[in-house]
Design a protein around this nucleic acid. Structure first.
Lengths: 131, 131
DNA sequence: CTGCATCCTGACCGATACTG
DNA sequence: CAGTATCGGTCAGGATGCAG
């Protein structure tokens, strides 16, 4: 693998990547699901429907922008429903769709695992850093 | 909320975030687990131990750099083991640790869900875009 | 209250080259 | 083959202001 193969390898990788995508469209969806805020939003909405501002307070650290952006994506993917109540100050409620509720336990499983094993991971990190 | 509150709000958010972290150290770990390549690496290693280059070929699209970087993090977190065999061309094998194997099924659950429901999600996306 | 548009910084990540 | 270091472009995402 010398200099010339640089572009070649890129092309190959690109083709392979595309082919992989074609055979396994999961990739794109997995990346969506792995988004920075998706897990947290799922966990929050799993506890019950919430308004935009409630989610913002619940998650603490997310900007309004990212909240809206992420919720939009989830809505587009059919995982979250968005209900607008045209009162005086507009009220917007978010909830998990049936599809989202189907996925929820698997997201929670990750979160639960993290909560259960954080200490082991921390210990491993300390051991690693100590070397 | 004028100019001064800008930094104030940032500090508040930071404190709130840290407080949240303190009460729930899960956040940091969840973000690690949600990393772009972690899911794919887990799925790959779930099929068996692999060398650096094998992983690179298997995942197709990941750069050598990101592979190393992500594997380092996983090793530090105690989820992956790294075995070096000092032969002439050095041989390095990666494998899931017991901790990693414990987590594996939950990662696979996400992947499986994605594979199973990609069509519904695609349908939802088309419906959304058509509006 | 909710959401959109804009600006801007910093982190991520790919490409490249070099060590062992 | 495996890994590190560096440079540079891209883009996520925070801050701010405004609209409905």
């Amino acid at each position: 693998m010398t200099t010339t193969s640089a572009s070649q390898r890129r092309d190959q990788a690109k083709q392979a990547y595309d082919a992989f995508i074609a055979a396994c469209p999961t990739r794109q969806l997995m990346e969506s699901l792995n988004d920075k805020w998706v897990g947290l939003i799922f966990c929050a909405l799993g506890e019950g429907d919430m308004r935009h501002s409630e989610l913002g307070r619940r998650i603490a650290g997310v900007s309004s922008k990212m909240l809206t952006q992420t919720l939009r994506t989830l809505e587009r993917d059919g995982l979250v429903t968005r209900t607008v109540t045209p009162t005086v100050p507009v009220r917007v409620d978010y909830a998990l769709s049936p599809l989202g509720r189907d996925l929820l336990p698997r997201m929670v499983a990750i979160k639960d695992w993290a909560e259960t094993h954080i200490e082991q991971v921390d210990a491993a990190r300390r051991a690693y850093d100590r070397r």
